[in-house]
Computed example of a mutant assay.
Amino acid sequence: MAKLILTHEVTGLGAPGDVVDVKDGYARNFLLPRGLATGWSKGAEKQIAGIRKARKAREIASLDEAKAVADRLRSNPVTVAVKAGESGRLFGAVTTTHIAEAVAAAGGPTIDKRKVEIGQPIKSVGSYTVQVRLHDDVSAQIDVRVVPQA
């Protein structure tokens, strides 16, 4: 078992600043090469405190506030305009950054792109449902319409 400090959120494992025990292969082949975690040491306590402080600044503070933001997101569909070919196939894909920027442009709350979860890659024009994790107990399903750029 390897003891690591998470530097990014990993679904099903933990949030940035958490100290986790994972199998050696998972650490060596997935978490460390992708930069999602660093090795744990006694001197890393300052690093953990810094990560947690930054996380608190970005996080939605209360459960009630998270529910209110979730209601606003559910009620407002988001439109993302991207370059597309004649058949509706995109040049590239819609990313979490595109979605976070589109939510802010539509007058919605500022959301962290790392909290947006896209189930299947979005590579064609159409309507999609995307999940946004706002709080440990609150997540919102938002409707995303992908349209060709004019």
Rank of each mutant, 00 (worst) to 15 (best):
K56A: 11
A66H: 10
R89K: 13
L63E: 14
S62M: 12
G92C: 00
S87A: 13
E65V: 14
P77W: 00
R74P: 01
L90D: 14
T79F: 00
G85E: 01
I60P: 03
S75T: 00
K56D: 06
E59C: 11
A70C: 05
V78P: 04
N76K: 15
A70R: 07
A84F: 04
L73W: 03
R74K: 15
A61Q: 12
A57K: 13
V78G: 05
L73E: 05
K83E: 07
A68M: 07
R74W: 04
L90A: 07
A57D: 07
R58W: 03
E86K: 13
R58H: 07
F91S: 11
R55T: 05
P77A: 02
E65A: 12
V69G: 03
G88I: 00
K67G: 09
V80A: 01
K83M: 04
E86V: 09
V80R: 13
F91T: 15
D64P: 04
A68H: 12
E65S: 10
V78T: 14
S62F: 14
A57T: 14
A81G: 01
A57P: 01
N76H: 12
G88M: 04
K83R: 13
N76P: 00
G85S: 05
T79N: 08
A93M: 02
A68K: 13
A70E: 04
A81H: 11
R58L: 09
E86C: 05
D71F: 10
R74T: 00
K83H: 06
V80P: 05
L73N: 06
R55I: 01
S75F: 01
A66T: 13
K83T: 15
F91K: 10
A81W: 09
A57S: 06
